[in-house]
Simulated scan of single mutants.
Amino acid sequence: MSARSADSGPTMTVALVKAGRTKIRYPAEPVGDDGNRITVRAPWAAPGVRDFGFVRFEPGDVFTEHYWRDRWYAVKEVRTGEGRLKGWYCDITRPAVLRGTELVVEDLDLDLWVSADGSSVLRLDEDEFEESGLAGRDPSAADAAVRALDELEDLARAGGLAGLVS
């Protein structure tokens, strides 16, 4: 959901896979890799504005994206081009896999939005998750996904997402 700016440094590619197909692929600037958490940064690259009602992603927004090799989620800090924090968009995913300079992440449909001030914590796309049939195909993955969403929601309500990614 992001892309590289013309003046950024070395890039890697983030490939978001959903239901066995690549949903989106975009270049991102590596920020860090501690052996477990991989962090990249990229500006919003979709054409125009995406208005969810609770947040708008628009040209100029910058995503700092945190992926883990051992956790079932990704946390994306979203800021305006001027640096104002909009909030955190969290994807429930299988643990990330880095293959050379490509970061592959399998999206499991569940999401969480946390506003910048923490006053709004929204569970998203639970209907899509049910419709995906993951619970029938891979019950252990479905259980891990639900546990990850619960964990992130608990952290967010306790004010812990900023601490998780700092």
Rank of each mutant, 00 (worst) to 15 (best):
Y67I: 05
A96V: 13
R79F: 00
T101D: 13
R123M: 14
G81I: 04
L122R: 15
A145S: 14
H66S: 09
A135L: 05
D111Y: 07
L98R: 02
E106F: 05
L110A: 12
D33N: 11
P95T: 03
A74L: 03
W72R: 03
W44T: 00
R69H: 03
D109S: 12
V104A: 08
R56G: 06
D138Y: 06
A145H: 06
D117V: 09
E58W: 00
P47I: 02
S120I: 12
R137A: 15
D107R: 11
G87D: 00
N36C: 13
Y89A: 07
I38V: 14
F129S: 03
E106V: 12
D127S: 13
T101Y: 05
R69W: 04
D33G: 10
F63T: 00
P43Y: 01
W113L: 09
A96N: 06
A46L: 14
P43G: 15
R99T: 10
D143C: 10
L124P: 05
N36I: 14
D33K: 06
L122D: 03
A45S: 10
E131D: 15
D127N: 12
D127I: 12
D107C: 12
D138N: 14
L98C: 06
V104C: 10
A74F: 02
G87V: 00
V40M: 04
E102A: 12
S132G: 01
G53T: 07
V31L: 11
Y89P: 06
E65Q: 14
P43T: 02
A135P: 07
S120V: 14
E126V: 15
G118M: 09
E58D: 07
W44E: 00
S140F: 14
A144N: 07
R50F: 14
R71D: 15
L110W: 13
A28C: 14
I92Q: 03
V114A: 13
L122C: 07
V105P: 03
G83R: 04
G87R: 00
R50A: 11
I92L: 15
V31P: 01
D61S: 00
R37I: 08
P59E: 05
R94M: 07
R123S: 11
G53M: 11
G53H: 09
P95C: 04
F52R: 08
W113F: 15
